[in-house]
């Protein structure tokens, strides 16, 4: 039992290193490399930049990057169209089934270049690193099993379970005041 506990603890802690790193400044060549996505011809899916792997997938499981993504989500008005993932004039994100693909490269292209049915391009409003942070964050919104690194709730109105509570697995509440 102890061996298991120790092994589990060691695994958690090892994961912790990567999860807690706060890389505040990327060198410009790295940023430039992060922009080198190779999407498929229809701009859905494709090959992520090689540098992502070399950096250790910092936008997948790093708590700081994910929380920065969550901050950008509200700072850059994503909320106005997509609400807290429930959608409004933009489609919902909570279900994790997205029009233009939910893989990182598709998302990156969606955010950077925009999409034809109303998604504006953010390439001139966000830096490449910020777009990747948003990509990482968005991928925590539509999941039904939460990661430890996913952000918790904001100090805001409660709208749905936070990303670390796997919002997509939440039950639909009953309609109020019926």
């Amino acid at each position: 039992m102890r061996a298991v506990a120790i092994a589990g603890l060691a695994a958690l802690l090892a994961a912790g290193c990567q999860r807690e790193e706060r890389d505040l400044r990327l060198d410009p060549p790295v940023t430039a490399a992060l922009d080198q996505v190779a999407p498929m011809a229809n701009a859905v899916g494709g090959a992520p930049p090689d540098v992502l792997g070399a950096l250790g997938e910092p936008y997948e499981g790093n708590a700081y990057n994910l929380s920065e993504g969550k901050r950008l989500y509200s700072w850059f008005n994503c909320k106005g169209c997509h609400a807290d993932g429930g959608g409004a004039s933009g489609p919902a994100l909570l279900d994790g089934w997205w029009r233009y693909g939910s893989d990182p490269v598709s998302l990156f292209v969606t955010l950077r270049d925009g999409r034809q049915n109303g998604m504006p391009a953010y390439g001139d409003k966000l830096t490449t690193e910020q777009i990747w942070q948003l990509v990482g964050y968005l991928r925590t919104v539509g999941v039904s099993s939460a990661s430890f690194a996913a952000p918790s709730r904001n100090d805001e109105m409660q709208s749905r379970p936070a990303e670390n509570r796997a919002p997509a697995s939440a039950e639909l509440g009953t309609p109020p005041s019926r």
């Binding site: 505040l24 400044r25 690193e129 910020q130």
Partner: peptide, 16 residues
Amino acid sequence: ADPQTVKPGNKMPMVP
């Protein structure tokens, strides 16, 4: 040019 070196962690990104 490089806000994160002058004031690490602040919310201004390095815009190329």
